[in-house]
């Protein structure tokens, strides 16, 4: 028994002695823990500072991007607005150009009237007179080809009205509801001044005069002359459209459809082409 206890004693002593650390061990361990904690705290702080810097940088970048985006949006808006304004100004210029052309036309007519007055005064003052223009005074068809060889008379051709004056007076007659007088004036213009830049307009309004007179065939012929003779004139799509409407009025739907298709193909960007497309959809 005793011998058994003696055998176990070293084991017990060994076991219990191993469970107790010395004070130094504990202090060392505590110092180690403190050091570890301080290291961790420093590391966390550094990481936090780093993260803060990153976040701050990201905020700065985000703000910059936001500002940039706003500037881009504003610029886009400005550009869009500017483009719109430019477009509107172009439209205004276009309208005003037409207005100015009309004014120039009236001034030319007025100038020609004055020249005619001066010329007629000179003729009456000098019996010898001046040479008269040659060529036919009028053409039944009103075709611009008729009398094409006739040169435009100069200011010295007596009291002969010039092309602008003739055009202006004829247009006034048309507006006043005197298509016969207008037609005569326009035919005279076409015969006497076949090279005038007013010829396409005169030819077009000749069609209008015929139409007002109720002469559908004459109107169709005059409009056709605009399209064939002056295909690049702004009057050409209008004349073609009016030809098509004339055909439709006569009951010639096939002919009208053909002319409307022709209009859409040849002048796709004209207003008349838009109208023609809708007309084609409803034409029966």
């Amino acid at each position: 028994m005793i011998r058994g206890v003696r055998c176990l004693l070293p084991v017990v002593l060994l076991a219990t002695g191993a469970c107790f650390a010395t004070r130094e061990d504990v202090q060392a361990l505590h110092a180690d823990v403190q050091t570890l904690r301080a290291d961790n705290a420093r590391s966390d702080s550094a990481r936090r500072a780093s993260l803060d810097r990153v976040v701050a940088s990201l905020n700065i970048v985000r703000d910059s991007l936001g500002l940039l985006s706003n500037r881009v949006v504003k610029m886009q808006g400005d550009v869009r607005g500017d483009l719109y304004n430019v477009g509107q100004q172009l439209l205004q210029i276009q309208e005003l150009t037409g207005q100015s052309q009309q004014r120039v036309q009236e001034l030319r007519a007025s100038l020609e009237a004055k020249q005619s007055d001066i010329a007629s005064t000179s003729v009456s003052a000098s019996p010898a007179g001046m040479s008269a223009p040659t060529g036919s005074a009028s053409s039944p068809s009103g075709s611009p080809r008729a009398g094409a060889a006739t040169p435009a008379p100069s200011a010295g051709a007596g009291a002969t009205p010039g092309p602008n004056q003739l055009f202006q007076i004829s247009l006034e007659q048309l507006r006043r509801g005197s298509p016969g007088a207008a037609r005569t004036g326009l035919q005279t213009l076409l015969a006497q001044y076949p090279t005038s830049d007013l010829v396409p307009d005169a030819q077009f309004y000749l069609g209008e005069a015929y139409k007002q007179e109720g002469n559908a065939a004459g109107a169709d012929s005059a409009y056709a002359a605009v399209v064939s003779g002056y295909p690049t004139s702004p009057r050409a799509p209008t004349a073609l459209y009016k030809r098509a409407l004339g055909m439709e009025e006569k009951g010639n739907v096939t002919g009208a459809r053909g002319l409307l298709n022709d209009l859409v193909q040849r002048y796709p960007r004209s207003d008349e082409a838009s109208l023609a497309k809708e007309r084609l959809r409803t034409l029966k």
Binding site: G135, S136, G158, A159, T160, P161, A181, G185, T188
Partner: peptide, 12 residues
């Protein structure tokens, strides 16, 4: 022709 033209112009 000129006379006719002048007459027309005056008439207009």
């Amino acid at each position: 022709s000129t006379r006719a033209l002048v007459a027309f112009a005056i008439a207009l």
